[in-house]
């Protein structure tokens, strides 16, 4: 009996019905894909979701033995408290200032450099391009100790106090953002057809005009991707501010939240989660609106040669 149905099924599969069976297996593959995607999405979105839940709770509810995955009496208390205290607003202002200035500096340094490296051959240009890529691979964890000592020496020599001022980060962050931005801009600029800038040069445009009138408009998506990257890195950087700034009025958000909201052994988790969520908001908002540029920049970094 079973052999009969088996052979019948085989017969039906061997004949024109084959297409139907393929689409059926395709349908199952699709269902499984959705099933696992839901599982992975749950895993990936769990911590931010839990941040949101905790941020809506009162301290009493957080320490109660109720279901932690549900808010029984939602309140905006944490948000109001954080956004009305000067301290948190100072962190936010420091972060915003540092990130915006670093993004500007990065673009001013890396766009002309990328243009020169991708189009104008000069002595050592190939070596420099490779050097830019290698610099991008140097992590900040390798440099913070010598830089700390160098800055202390600068103070001894000139009397300029660099350490424990928020603007010291303006010197430090470009070491992380400039190499990467230059690297992906070289990639974007190199993909622009040579005929375009040759025509401009023949028409009598200067190099500067070629850059501002042709390269920047044509490579605008790359420019946006690089800008987003520079902003995200500056906003998220944790080691440099932790090592180089200590006074509460000089801290940026990530360090501010970690060091000031955790007071001794007393963790005010409602406020910490609120602070962390608000701190994660700017990159998330930018990402939500400019996702395609963000992803283009991400893949360009390692794939474009």
């Amino acid at each position: 009996m079973s052999a009969q149905t088996g052979s019948a099924a085989q017969a039906s599969r061997a004949q024109p019905v084959r297409y139907g069976s393929m689409s059926r297996s395709r349908r199952w593959a699709l269902r499984w894909s959705y099933f696992f995607l839901v599982l992975f999405a749950a895993f990936f979105l769990l911590p931010p979701f839990y941040m949101l839940i905790t941020s809506l709770k009162t301290s009493a509810e957080i320490s109660a033995a109720t279901n932690p995955w549900w808010v029984f009496s939602p309140t905006l208390e944490n948000y109001i408290e954080l956004l009305t205290t000067d301290q948190y607003l100072v962190f936010f202002r420091n972060s915003a200032l540092v990130s915006l200035i670093v993004v500007t500096l990065t673009m001013v340094i890396s766009v002309p450099a990328a243009f020169a490296l991708s189009r104008m051959k000069f002595w050592g240009s190939a070596t420099l391009a490779t050097g830019v890529f290698l610099t991008y691979l140097v992590p900040e964890t390798l440099l913070f100790i010598p830089l700390f000592k160098i800055f202390a020496e600068v103070r001894n020599l000139t009397g300029i106090e660099l350490i424990n001022n928020w603007w010291v980060l303006l010197i430090l962050y470009p070491t992380l953002t400039v190499p990467f931005c230059t690297w992906i801009m070289i990639g974007y600029f190199a993909s622009i057809p040579k005929e375009l800038d040759e025509a401009a040069l023949i028409d009598g445009a200067t190099w500067m005009q070629t850059l501002t009138k042709i390269f920047i408009p044509v490579a605008l998506p790359g420019l946006i991707a690089a800008t987003i990257f520079a902003f995200t890195v500056s906003w998220a950087q944790f080691l440099y501010p932790l090592a180089f700034t200590t006074s509460t009025d000089q801290l940026v958000l990530p360090v501010g939240i970690v060091t000031t909201l955790i007071k001794g052994d007393v963790f005010n988790w409602g406020q910490i989660m609120t602070g962390a969520l608000l701190g994660a908001a700017p990159p998330l908002v930018i990402y939500a609106f400019l996702m395609d540029y963000y992803i283009a920049g991400l893949t360009a970094g390692a794939t474009k040669g």
């Binding site: 995200t232 969520l277 963000y294």
Partner: peptide, 24 residues
Amino acid sequence: KWRGMLLVPWVIPPAMSTLAWLWL
């Protein structure tokens, strides 16, 4: 849509998301 959702952990500053894990 899915890609957008799945990339969220990479976008949140690591210091912030690690705090959420610390609390979890």
